[in-house]
């Protein structure tokens, strides 16, 4: 109950701040919350808006599948193999901090315009945190559990599915949460350049036509969706950690 009122307070404070900023800079740079909400409702009701949502959704879905399954597989392999993990970790950390937008021209050249470039860009954003979190989660599994698995003569697939995944699950959910936000970021950035469809394109197009209302409305819809999904994952995350401790 306490947490709910806190959340509400944060939302009210953010909207108030937004309103104040609107008064300072004016509608030319920032539309008011009410105005933006009206435009957002208008967008959500229009038939031309939904194909863009579908385009972004499909790219996000593919990127997430690749980032999550690729990240889990590579992360588990690196977590089990100590030496490989220790070699890979500094490389992964530097890749993680690399501004990936600098790689976008390379990706466009490699994958061409369209869905595959966006998926590739979303994936490279999301996969690295998933790998790092998974690797660390597997490494911190108590050795006695792995020894028990050997005493019970588990096969490698059994070891992964019945010990490693459940033991690492609370940490994995944390990794997926971070991975989700970054994958969405990657897909949207991908859509902002050299793209004709998607929510990222809508934002860039609105900026180009100086349609601040539309730009703000799309950003509002995106931010709300992302926050809701992230909050859902955080909720699962917290529950997992509570049960494990």
């Amino acid at each position: 109950m306490h947490r709910k009122t806190d959340t509400l307070l944060v939302i009210v404070a953010l909207v108030a701040l937004w309103q104040v900023l609107h008064w300072i800079v004016g509608s030319v740079a920032l539309t008011s919350p009410a105005d933006t909400l009206a435009r957002a409702v208008e967008l959500l009701g229009s038939a031309t808006f939904w194909p863009h949502v579908a385009e972004t959704g499909v790219a996000l879905l593919y990127s997430l599948l690749l980032a999550v399954f690729g990240g889990l597989t590579i992360g588990i392999a690196l977590g089990i193999n100590r030496l490989a993990g220790e070699v890979a970790e500094p490389i992964l950390v530097s890749l993680y901090s690399l501004p990936k937008i600098t790689l976008y021209p390379v990706i466009l050249l490699a994958f061409g315009l369209g869905l595959s470039a966006k998926v590739a860009f979303g994936t490279i954003h999301g996969i690295i945190p998933v790998i790092i979190f998974t690797m660390n989660a597997v490494r911190t599994i108590p050795p006695v559990m792995l020894r028990s698995a050997r005493v019970m003569r588990l096969s490698p697939p059994q070891l992964v599915s019945t010990i490693i995944l459940p033991a690492a699950l609370p940490e994995l959910v944390s990794g997926l949460r971070v991975g989700f936000s970054l994958t969405l970021l990657g897909v949207l950035i991908g859509e902002m350049f050299a793209s004709q469809r998607g929510l990222g394109y809508l934002v860039m197009n609105a900026i180009g036509g100086h349609d601040v209302r539309t730009m703000m409305a799309v950003v509002l819809i995106l931010a709300t969706t992302a926050v809701l999904i992230s909050a859902g994952l955080l909720h699962i995350d917290r529950r997992m950690h509570r049960r494990a401790s």
Binding site: V144, V151, M152, R243
Partner: peptide
């Protein structure tokens, strides 16, 4: 051959019953 370790080797994500049944199910 069965081994009991010094450290707590229970699986925290399983109930007591499922912990005990674990090896039998895998086998």
């Amino acid at each position: 051959v069965g081994v009991v370790f010094q450290e707590d080797a229970t699986f925290p994500w399983l109930t007591v019953w499922d912990n005990i049944a674990f090896g039998l199910r895998r086998a």
